[in-house]
Write a protein that binds this DNA or RNA. Structure first.
Lengths: 353, 353
DNA sequence: CCAATGATTGTTATCGATAACAATATGGAT
DNA sequence: ATCCATATTGTTATCGATAACAATCATTGG
């Protein structure tokens, strides 16, 4: 740490300073067993003195391992992306990897470009945290030859797949509402292109059919609170709606807001269930009943699988789904007692502010 | 794309396949001007045929430029981190860089370790998106010799600093409440270690003093909704509290929830202002008055500055702050008219569910 | 005492690209 | 025709590490 170099010191500098060969320095730094204690000390002293730091680029070139994982996410700032990224980063750190993240738009072109950029950077493996249904085959072709984990997609898309069981998530939520006594459950779904969204929608539909309920038409949002609000205004004016399953908590906030503006009470008039259990879900008015998905833990698991895949390229199609849980809070209740008989008042818009 | 290689094709393979030297291939791929059109075509054809892709590792080794930016964030999943990361990633993409992100805990040890990891990876520059006051000098020493941008920190910490004017943010919010007629404004601050939090707190204090108001004691949260809830329960039982400035929207949600549970009405009994303008702020009940900060845009700007710094290492201490704006929604109103005279009822806890 | 084994260190080649320099060809201008 | 500037291509060295192999030394068993 004493002298200032124009360039950073290299192994060779350390080697000269400690009177050994570069190879020995390399051995010391990678904890090779057969190094005499005295040389180890000499080398480490020189390392300290010169302020030497490993050059990962050079190592990556010769070993073919960059110790970097590529992560592809969609350019959104919603809760699931944030906590998934966090989990991936923590997992990567524990596994001795760093994360190279790129964002992409939800289009074939955008995805292709982003994957290429990761490949260019020489990552050791890729986590596709962008469940885009259409792109499966294209992406499979692009990522051929490099370990890849797909998140949330239906199993079998790529080498491996990690996620949360979406079938179960939507089923739990739907059943909860039915068990409260609702005749049926309406659904505000996420964008069709997202595999998670369509899996939830499918499972909601199946659950209703199995229970012998009428199947209401589906409304679609884009994960944003405002799209939830828009759809909430539509459903709120329909007196037959007593229970709504919203595909994400963020949209559910918008739905509850819309219902409140229409003068309806949640959950007395309408019950609302979200999915995700974002940090804010417990603090809305009323607190949101939702399905908890541990994105962070899922991210960590994805990294573990990917690292496994990197080290043993043999294994393919391993996949692991974790189970979501129902968190009952204040936004769900039995349907209004007088529901069948009551005259439905024409709802009016009303600001509660 | 026809044959399957055990290893990826290199420039040499392309060179042989197209009958030129490796250097010429390099020239073609980096758009060098002096290359004959016919050779360019030959080379590009071979590139296509072999499915060649640049090896950035090798290039980084020889050029000393990895075209990668390191980003250090704290291990949280709140809105500001998510949208800041997004802005940084988009900015980096536009500038032809990729992003290597590491998360860190809020401790000197954690930060040091994380910065080292970035340095090891050979990033061209670093964005410190973790405004940790204490660590300034340590980090300055660690990042000596590599372009670095500090976000949100007070100016002068490192080479450059980019952020949002926190003084202005807290002042806008406080003034808004005072102008509505509140005698004073209470404050739930963020953790003291965060420079953003302490800047906001300072500015709130200054604004109150300048306006000749009484200075209430500060409460501290940790950015989480639950810490807001905890502090909200405290302030809600104090009848003197009519206006609260909460250091983040997420905590503000917790505060509003707590006040509601105490049977208080927001904003009739108590006004609440948040900071950030998260996507959900417009959809709470009541919708949240807050200070908008464009994190995404700030992230992009940080990248631009950093890239400038990388290309012209001369410039130092450039810094740029953007202005926040006040967004008035439904959570603020004049104080209760009978405030001075009314007998304050002992608030009771009441679940609205 | 010698061969064999294992510990310890050094030498050389290599990863895949680009920089710097060298060489050749081409096209006017003189 | 000669020479210089420019266009085009090739050669060699290099970035900073590790792998593979070679060499030396000490120790142990026969």
């Amino acid at each position: 740490m004493e002298r200032i170099f124009t360039r950073r010191p290299s192994m060779r500098d350390v080697a000269e300073a400690s009177g050994v060969s570069a190879q020995t320095v390399s051995r010391v730094l990678s904890d090779h067993r057969n190094v005499k204690e005295t040389t180890r000390e000499k080398v480490l002293a020189a390392v300290e003195k010169l302020g030497y730091r490993h050059n990962n680029t050079a190592r990556a070139l010769v070993t073919g391992r960059s110790k970097t994982l590529g992560v592809l996410t969609l350019a959104t700032k919603n809760y699931s992306r944030a906590s998934l990224s966090l989990g991936i980063e923590l997992g990567a750190r524990d596994a001795g990897y760093t994360v190279n993240s790129v964002t992409s738009t939800m289009s074939l072109k955008g995805l292709t470009e982003s994957v290429s950029r990761l490949l260019l950077q020489g990552v050791d493996g890729i986590i596709l945290a962008s469940p885009f249904r259409e792109a499966a085959s294209t992406i499979r072709r692009l990522t051929a030859g490099i370990p890849t984990i797909t998140m949330g997609g239906s199993a079998g898309t790529c080498n491996g797949s990690v996620g949360i069981d979406q079938d179960q998530a939507a089923e739990l939520a739907t059943r909860h509402l039915l068990e409260l006594g609702h005749k049926t459950v309406w659904h505000i779904a996420g964008p069709r292109e997202w595999s998670d969204a369509s899996l939830r929608e499918e499972s909601w539909r199946r659950t209703l059919i199995e229970a012998g309920c009428l199947l209401p038409p589906v409304l679609y949002g884009d994960w944003s609170p405002s799209s939830g609000h828009r759809n909430g205004l539509i459903l709120g004016t329909n007196p037959k709606v007593t229970a709504i399953l919203v595909a994400s908590d963020e949209m559910a906030f918008g739905v509850i807001r819309a219902l409140t503006e229409l003068g309806l009470h949640v959950p007395k008039d309408v019950s609302v269930v979200g999915i995700d259990d974002i940090d804010l879900a417990a603090y809305s008015t009323p607190p949101l009943t939702t399905i908890r998905q541990s994105f962070e833990e899922t991210g960590r698991r994805a990294v573990q699988h990917l690292v496994g895949l990197i080290n043993k390229p043999g294994m393919t199609n391993l996949s692991s789904m974790s189970a979501p849980t129902l968190i009952v809070r204040g936004s769900t209740a039995p349907p209004p007692a007088d529901w069948a008989s009551k005259v439905c008042p024409k709802p009016h818009r009303q600001d509660c502010v």
